[in-house]
Measured scan of single mutants.
Amino acid sequence: RNRTTFSTFQLEELEKVFQKTHYPDVYAREQLALRTDLTEARVQVWFQNRRAKWRK
Rank of each mutant, 00 (worst) to 15 (best):
E13Y: 02
Q31P: 00
N49P: 01
S7G: 06
Q31W: 05
R55K: 09
A41V: 09
L34M: 14
R42S: 15
A33C: 14
L34R: 14
V17Y: 05
T39K: 04
R55Q: 10
A33W: 01
H22Q: 14
K56V: 07
V17A: 15
V26W: 14
F6H: 10
Y23H: 05
R42G: 10
E30P: 02
K56E: 13
W54G: 13
N2K: 11
R3H: 15
H22T: 04
F6W: 10
L32W: 07
R51S: 02
P24R: 01
F6T: 05
Q48E: 09
E15A: 02
E15Q: 01
L34E: 15
V43M: 05
R35D: 11
R3F: 13
R42H: 12
Q19H: 07
R51N: 03
R1Y: 08
R3E: 12
W54T: 11
Q44C: 13
T5D: 15
F9W: 11
T5H: 10
R35G: 05
R50T: 03
V26A: 13
R55W: 08
E13W: 05
F47M: 06
T39F: 00
D25N: 04
A41H: 05
R42E: 07
T8H: 12
K56L: 14
Q48R: 13
Q31H: 03
S7W: 05
Y27D: 14
R29Y: 05
V26Y: 07
A52H: 07
D25S: 06
R51K: 02
E13T: 05
R3M: 15
L14D: 02
R42I: 14
E40Y: 04
N2M: 13
T21I: 04
L14V: 00
R29D: 01
W54L: 15
W54I: 09
F18N: 03
R1T: 13
W54Y: 12
R35Q: 09
D37R: 15
T8V: 11
Q10M: 02
H22M: 15
V26S: 07
R50S: 11
T4Q: 14
R1F: 15
E13K: 04
K53T: 15
A41Q: 10
W54M: 12
L34F: 14
A33H: 03
L34P: 00
R51V: 04
K16C: 09
A28V: 15
H22C: 06
W54C: 08
L34Q: 15
S7H: 06
E12V: 10
E12A: 09
V45F: 13
F47S: 00
